[in-house]
Nucleic acid binder design. Sequence first.
DNA 1: TATCATAATGCAACTCAGTTGCAAAAATAA
DNA 2: TTATTTTTGCAACTGAGTTGCATTATGATA
Lengths: 127, 127
Amino acid sequence: MCEKLKNLKKTEYKIALLLSENGILNANDLQNMLNVDKATVYRNLKSLLKKKIIREILTDEKSFYEIDCNIHNPIHPHFECVKCKKIYCLKPLSAQDTINLSHYTDFEISSIEIIIKGICNECKKQF
Amino acid sequence: MCEKLKNLKKTEYKIALLLSENGILNANDLQNMLNVDKATVYRNLKSLLKKKIIREILTDEKSFYEIDCNIHNPIHPHFECVKCKKIYCLKPLSAQDTINLSHYTDFEISSIEIIIKGICNECKKQF
DNA sequence: TATCATAATGCAACTCAGTTGCAAAAATAA
DNA sequence: TTATTTTTGCAACTGAGTTGCATTATGATA
Ligand SMILES: [Mn+2]
Ligand SMILES: [Mn+2]
Ligand SMILES: [Zn+2]
Ligand SMILES: [Zn+2]
């Protein structure tokens, strides 16, 4: 288990644990699994994001969340199927594919998000 | 001017032209510049997206749009300042930084979006 | 030109993810 | 215990984006 999860508040910890165990989840998933108010979910997600314990994946309609542990879950691209709206975690970029952020000297970079869109295998079969 | 802009419907064309001239804009910008209903803006944006005339850049709160012409505006990463919420277009990735999408054989890829977050130079000075 | 069919627009109501103010409950300090 | 601070639930709200429907504009056809 990720070291970062120590010293979290109770609900923060529960959310972080659920994300560690289940991969990628949205706010509604978490609300159902935790049986708490959605305001509580969003407030805790915000503080976890600020603490850099979790990462946010934006889509057209809602956000998804995953644990941010470099060892267990290194930064990686995501695939969003435009048909079924499912989010897939892709394998991390290989060294030669890694984006060189050092040109962007005008910005103090804190995170990077790569979203690839298209049609997943399941949906390709069906249609 | 981009070849793609021919054969567009009237409002589609106006939007595409505004995006060509002004770079990145959101739906509200376009509504004000065109003096039309927001429903009209969104409907036309949707059809332009489907025709791949424009690209969408998602942020926490709203979407931005830019023209999709490989010659005049090749695909490039975007920077979102977490302070002022401004979106900056970054220079396209160099050849050695280009992501190799050919591993992802389970997916039929149609687009890729790279969003880098952090603090822009303006905001760094101010705070 | 007049008549009909189709597409685009305006408007208003709606949806839904996410936020916020506030009072109650829970945790923590004294 | 009592006082103070933090967290939660609830309900109302916000704002981007959508949708149904009547009206208007466009375009074809005779
Ligand atoms: Mn992931
Ligand atoms: Mn751009
Ligand atoms: Zn799919
Ligand atoms: Zn800024």
